[in-house]
Design a protein around this nucleic acid. Structure first.
Lengths: 337, 337
DNA sequence: CTTGGCACTCAGGACCGTGGAGTGCCAGGG
DNA sequence: CCCTGGCACTCCACGGTCCTGAGTGCCAAG
């Protein structure tokens, strides 16, 4: 029911509206894109497109602007992913290559994405639950207190201080550390819960209370704490797109870790490019924004997600290209370190 | 040359303007504050205040608004620090008490400050250079690669990966770790440079290349890297105060770590409350904002700084009260952990 | 199905007039 | 010398009117 030309018209409307921010009319359409028909014909097409809910006019006798449904069709069928220029690719590469630790990689990634797309960038730290333990360290801080440091194979470091019920000897701590590393080293964090459950038997009875304290903190840290960290950058880009007074709402949402997680999509398993447009968005208050996100990781393993957020009127092909490219490079960087 | 009443007038102007956001005129002044004189008298006073540069009128025959100089006088001589209500104090206490590690303390602090003052909150992580080493850990990741973890007495953990020139035995790493901890444990980070310089002699000659690699990374991390981390929160509060189109500029500045450091004031030594008003601000692009900051730390030791940022038209007494109170509580929390 | 013609609609800008808030100045009184 | 009431003046903000131009929907003809 939508013939070839009507689709072309929709595509043209989206493109023009995205680049000009102004409702686009039949006249300007025909000469900017070389559709070889008259404005009147286009008007008929637009009437149909409007009836179907792909476009609307802000007021009678103004141009048309796409609806969420219109963008959706555009993304699904009318546009590809725009590959980056080679200059941009080089820029990404050199910019990310300079990073020297995980924090730095994440920070640089967020800046990079924000700059490339001129939107707000959102990057999730490599997920704890998907990585595995590389080393556990116990550092005595005081007689009845020590610091627990867990290092994962994605370079992430978690630290927690632990209160011990009894004063601990240097020896018993050494022993505990050895046990922990022997058992946990290499385990996926999803397995940690079961592994830890068996641990107490390996410890001298007199030391069990202290060991139990440490174990429970480990569980808390690795298993119960789903609090994945998310970093945001490029918030200044929100000012160009006027959300009227919704800007406050958007900024507030961006400070909520939980919201950001839902935004990126909890279905973090498949690494495919996801686009959420306007009201498709699960988050109240971000109903006038779109999110382009994807998973990233080393090899076929998805460690976390990253993406950009902007007004529904955003340059989807470019955003998708940038997000996909950056995700790939970050994956490479992480794999190589 | 400014008698008692003129000062009272200035104070009243600042207070009214801050609460109403509108230029304040002689008439509304006299009945909102019970100055027992006629509007005409006030007008004369205002003429003088304007001549001296404490206030201006946006257009002829509109009310007056304070200049930066006016706010300065207000802060220095006309207003105290408004203490928090006991409810607020309790809220601070319970909110901060729930924190379980350093990251969490900082995050909670930033939220707290933003909520209390309804401004943008800025909190610097406890400074590396002012704390001392509690433990150094070396974790082998691969034959020629290991992870260096440094734990400070303020609970901060720094991690870096190190490329080794030669493959390293488990033994030699153990030895190196022992040497490092023996020498560095307890040193102030400012002394680390000199201590490290003497280290190579304590290491077996065959291991010197590897040791040197580690040492240089330590130096990089602790000494050369002045990159102190700063966390921002409550950016949404910027939307209420209209910076016209300067909002973008402000948001951009807030994403630059370096800028934030300068904002809080590098003169981090004395713990006194600092107020920077408008153009007094060292940062281009934040000339229309004010910053209220202070140092915080354990006991008499200043570890870092925190504060709030807002439009020059901000409620200084309240902001100062909140900043001071939060700084104290954070200090207590850090001291107790 | 496309096209040119035509009448219609409506947002936005320019223009104008008015009301009110606020000022500066002045002359008189304590 | 300082305070005060009175007065004339200035100008912003607000609302109404008009006009223009972009854009539309519809229709009849090709």
């Amino acid at each position: 029911m939508l013939d070839e030309r009507k689709l072309a018209v929709l595509r043209a409307i989206v493109e023009d509206y995205v680049s000009t921010t102004e409702p686009v009319g039949s006249k300007s359409l025909v000469d900017r894109h070389h559709l070889d028909v008259s404005p009147a014909t286009i008007r008929n097409d637009m009437a149909v497109l409007e009836e179907q809910g792909f476009i609307v006019q802000p007021h009678t006798s103004a141009g048309r602007i796409p609806t969420d449904k219109g963008y959706r069709l555009f993304v699904d069928r009318l546009s590809g992913v725009k590959p980056l220029s080679s200059a941009e690719r080089r820029a990404i590469e050199t910019f990310l290559a300079g990073a020297y630790d995980l924090d730095d990689v994440v920070m640089r990634t967020v800046r990079l994405l924000a700059q490339l797309t001129r939107q707000v960038a959102v990057v999730q730290y490599p997920s704890l639950t998907r990585s595995s333990v590389r080393h556990v360290e116990l550092v005595p801080l005081a007689a009845k207190r020590l610091m627990l440091v867990i290092i994962t194979d994605t370079g992430r470091v978690e630290q927690r201080s632990v209160e011990l019920p009894d004063a601990a000897e240097e020896d018993s701590i050494m022993h505990l550390r050895a046990v922990l590393n022997a058992c946990l080293d290499g385990s996926r964090l999803t397995e940690v819960a079961t592994v830890v459950a068996d641990l107490p038997e390996l410890v001298d009875p007199t030391e069990r209370p202290n060991a139990a304290a440490v174990f429970s903190v480990i569980l808390e840290t690795l298993v119960e704490r789903t609090d994945e960290r998310v970093v945001v950058g490029g918030a200044a880009n929100l000012t160009t797109a006027d959300f009227s007074r919704g800007l406050r709402e958007v900024l507030e949402s961006l400070e909520e870790q939980v919201v950001l997680m839902r935004l990126l999509g909890e279905s973090g398993d498949h690494p495919s490019l996801t686009v959420r447009i306007g009201a498709e968005n699960p988050v109240e208050g971000l109903r006038s924004t779109s999110v382009v996100a994807t998973g990233y990781g080393t090899g076929d393993q998805v460690l976390a997600r990253l993406g950009v957020l902007g007004p529904t009127r955003m340059d989807y092909p470019t955003a998708m290209g940038a997000v996909r490219a950056v995700a790939r490079y970050v994956g490479q960087i992480l794999a190589g370190s």
